[in-house]
Amino acid sequence: METVETFFQWLRQSHGINLTIGYDAWDRAQFLSGLWMTVKLSVLSILFSLLVGVVGAWAQGAQSRLLRLPVGLFVTFFRNTPPLVQLYFFFFALGSILRVQNDAGMSVPMISAFSWAVISLTLFAGALNTEIFRSGIDAVPKSTLEAAEALGFTRLQTYIYVVLPLALRISLPSLGTNLVNLVKTTTLAYAIAVPELLYSAAQIWSEQLNVREMMTILLLSYILLVAVLVWIMGRWERSLRIPGYGV
């Protein structure tokens, strides 16, 4: 560890590159906790948004208009409005209503900024996932479903054993694009003071005045995070690949 710190000290002294996170324990801890916060935001939003997408796509394909209409409105709302405005709406508009009294009798928010960020990002990405899964489901040939029907499969069995496995494979490329965007959109949480990567980097550069260095580190960090996600999506896609099948 010490040699690392010596290296970064030397880098600053001889080249003027001031990477405080390399030699300053406080800055490093701040940076790593920001990175960890971004990972948590991303993973939780990805998982919940996938769930929203599967359920939403299923509801959109339902017979009942009563079910299809709210999902259509949900998708339109979250697709047609800016995610930053959505986040502000949740945090400032809804958050100011949802307050409770704590033990000391003070009014405190019921839902933390972090939770609002997860909720907001989940719904934003979930709306797009709904559309992505929906198009995947639509791309499953009707004739394949008819074959399942002729074999005695119920609608639910057909959905589980035939439609979903095929729709997922068709959807994966666009799903990957949307999830990559979701990881990058977590930076919006900065706007409601969730101490994620951008927030912690900004804290560091405003104290140490090393904007250029921290910007570079910030960009590299996102490149790395997204690369990990792309690698996972690629492995998933490969594991689902069907020999001789087009998608």
Partner: peptide, 27 residues
């Protein structure tokens, strides 16, 4: 009643054996 279609309509994500087994096992 069994039915065979012009476009085969096999389940593309299942092997030949799995295609044959699926309905008796699941249905």
């Amino acid at each position: 009643i069994g039915m065979v279609f012009q476009q085969y309509n096999l389940f593309p994500h299942k092997t030949a054996l799995q295609n044959v087994m699926m309905a008796p096992v699941k249905v």
